[in-house]
């Protein structure tokens, strides 16, 4: 199994829709949490991504990304109360240092947790994108806008698993040495190895006519029901996020005391996000996916 979760074709509405549309759906799920601080809404958005992941058959990949993202989220939870002493409820008095007080407050800790939840939302939305959107198709579309950037991105998506395997082999070889070297030495060698790979790939690209590359022609493809359903969900999620934000449905006050708006408006927004994320996968039309695409 690959160390880094990668795209695999599966029978789901998200895989069957054109890459640009599927990417829009995932980006809408990544965009929404950026607008909100309210933990109810952020929690609902996490549920929405997970629901979409289950619907797309990539729950396993999301779980592996979640394991990676959890460390980052934990760091945010720990660091925020250390760098912010705002809030009235002091949990630990840290005294004065460098001209300021280093108290740990309940409010800063809660806000750290909220920020961590947002990090999880965004990372998992991008994980959904990497697991359910064909990178080749997406990058082919992007090549029409910026050829070299798109090809660089294509190479990156291709090279990540290759370099992960290279690093794993180097680490195994290090264990075979009578005096195994430190991790940093192996990591440095892996980086140097990746540069060699890059040079070889550059040569391979040259002999494939890269220097004379023209903008690829557009392939006309009729819009399928999956394209419509997924795009409608994407637009609805992004639209709901903007409207709810403007309407103040995501109310949250971190300091000086924590106040979470938790009324019918927040509940409605939360339920709507989950329902919209799950919508493309519901019903017979949503399940048939690849077979009729």
């Amino acid at each position: 199994m690959s160390l880094v979760p990668v795209y695999r074709r599966r029978a789901s509405a998200l895989h069957a829709a054109r890459a640009g549309v599927s990417a829009s759906f995932c980006l809408a799920l990544a965009f929404a949490p950026i607008l909100f601080d309210n933990p109810i809404v952020l929690g609902a958005l996490l549920c929405a991504v997970i629901a979409a992941g289950i619907g797309a058959g990539v729950a396993r990949e999301l779980r592996r990304w979640a394991a990676i993202a959890f460390g980052l989220a934990l760091l945010v939870v720990i660091v925020n109360p250390l760098v912010t002493s705002d809030g009235l409820t002091v949990l630990v008095r840290g005294g004065s240092f460098l001209g300021r007080r280093w108290d740990i407050t309940l409010e800063a800790t809660i806000y750290g947790a909220v920020a961590a939840l947002r990090v999880l939302d965004v990372v998992l939305a991008f994980a959904l994108l990497s697991a359910a959107v064909d990178p080749d198709e997406l990058l082919r579309a992007l090549r029409r806008v910026s050829y070299r950037s798109a090809l660089t991105a294509a190479l990156t998506t291709r090279l990540v698993p290759v370099l992960a395997r290279d690093a794993s082999r180097k680490s195994e070889a290090a264990r075979c040495r009578p005096r195994p070297p430190g991790r940093s030495t192996v990591a440095r060698a892996a980086v140097a190895g990746s540069l060699e790979r890059a040079v070889e790939l550059a040569a391979a690209l040259e002999v494939r006519g890269y220097s004379r590359a023209r903008r690829p022609q557009v392939a006309r493809r009729p819009w399928s029901r999956h394209d419509f359903r997924v795009l409608a969900s994407a637009v609805a999620i992004a639209g709901l996020a903007v409207v709810a934000k403007l309407a103040g449905a995501g109310g949250f006050q971190a300091y000086p005391t924590t106040h979470v708006s938790a009324g019918p408006a927040q509940a409605a927004v939360a339920v709507a996000f989950v329902a919209l994320a799950a919508a493309p996968f519901l019903g017979a039309a949503g399940r048939l996916g690849v077979a009729r695409a």
């Binding site: 990178p135 080749d136 294509a154 291709r158 790979r197 006519g209 890269y210 004379r212 392939a219």
Partner: peptide, 24 residues
């Protein structure tokens, strides 16, 4: 491993042809 550029097989075979500006 060092000469396959794209993630998918179909896209890989197509890449050189797309560089030449061939129609889809």
């Amino acid at each position: 491993e060092s000469q396959v550029v794209m993630g998918g097989v179909r896209a890989e075979i197509a890449l050189g042809l797309e560089h030449r500006g061939e129609s889809p």
